[in-house]
């Protein structure tokens, strides 16, 4: 089984810590994660908003490259990229004519041999993960799946679209206490981070409010976009809500890294807008800027 790694653009930039923590964890697990050769942007929301063929061609080029390299599966940690790649593979395998047309566009005969895997699937397949836990992450966590990990159910075929459980199970393995909450799969505002910050503030605010009101100490995410909206956009959220939220937003791989006893800095925790610190028993994670806002 050869697994390729598709980081996507944000993991090279604004979500650098997601990539850092993933690779740190992979090293402990002894898994190699070679990047898909000469990968390009999946096109994200912008491509499918503006052009159907482009929205399929960009992911198809990535998948074709992985295929050519003999990769059996491609790990796509970003939920948004995951969705684009998964949808593309589904549509092209369903429609032979379309597959041929897009293959022509990307100048490769795309066959669909490489599977698209998200971070939860990938981690859930690791045997005896709980045995690697050195410092159980004993916190009440709100597992936030967002939209694109579980929907559309018929295409991603991962977990159930309402009340998914896979991330909660994974968190429980790491010693965390996942809470039962209502906003697991509600939308955070996704691609409007920049263009409609007002809407992001509203939608993400509702998510934080529900998590906080049910006693969560951290929100766990598996998507750079969700992280951007819930963490980097925290000032906008607080401004709109007229109240402060201290709850940190942590990538699933960062929690795993912490549970494995990796140093926080290696996991990129210092790069968060909202300090990853827990009251009262635990001291702030060292190396994290305590200053808020900017």
């Amino acid at each position: 089984m050869k697994t390729g790694f598709y980081p996507g653009c944000s993991m090279k930039g604004s979500a650098r810590e997601y990539s850092e923590s993933l690779l740190a964890v992979a090293r402990v697990l002894g898994r190699e994660l070679p990047e898909v050769p000469d990968w390009n942007c999946c096109g994200a929301t912008a491509a499918h908003n503006l052009d159907h063929d482009l929205a399929l061609a960009l992911p198809a080029r990535i998948l074709a490259a992985a295929e050519k390299k003999g990769m059996d599966e491609v790990l796509v940690p970003c939920a948004a990229c995951y969705s684009r790649l998964k949808v593309t593979r589904h549509e092209l395998l369903e429609d032979e004519k379309l597959r041929q047309r897009i293959s022509g566009l990307v100048e490769a005969d795309y066959r669909g041999s490489a599977k698209v895997v998200n971070i939860i699937e990938w981690l859930a397949a690791v045997p005896d993960l709980e045995k690697l836990v050195k410092k159980p992450f004993q916190r009440k966590v709100a597992c936030y799946y967002g939209c694109l990990l579980v929907r559309p159910a018929g295409i991603v075929e991962f977990d159930r679209p309402e009340e998914p459980q896979s991330m909660d199970l994974l968190m429980a393995k790491l010693g965390a206490k996942p809470i039962d909450w209502a906003f697991k799969t509600e939308c955070c505002g996704a691609g409007f981070s920049v263009s409609r910050t007002d809407l992001v503030a509203k939608l993400s605010g509702l998510i934080l409010e529900d998590a906080v009101s049910r006693g969560a100490e951290a929100v766990i995410v598996a998507c750079p976009m969700c992280h951007l909206n819930l963490d980097l956009r925290r000032p906008n959220i607080e401004k709109r809500a007229g109240k402060k939220y201290d709850i940190p937003v942590i990538y699933i791989t960062q929690v795993l890294g912490l549970a494995m006893g990796l140093p926080p800095k290696k996991l990129g925790l210092q790069r968060h807008k909202v300090a990853v610190k827990f009251a009262p028993a635990e001291s702030p994670v060292p190396g994290v800027s305590a200053k808020r806002g900017a």
């Binding site: 942007c41 929301t45 912008a46 409609r196």
Partner: peptide
């Protein structure tokens, strides 16, 4: 207008560099 501008800026970046240059 803003949403479209964002999408276009995004794709322009992808067109020129192949990846999103934030």
């Amino acid at each position: 207008k803003d949403i479209l501008a964002f999408h276009r800026a995004f794709l322009d970046s992808v067109k020129h560099t192949g990846r999103l240059f934030e």
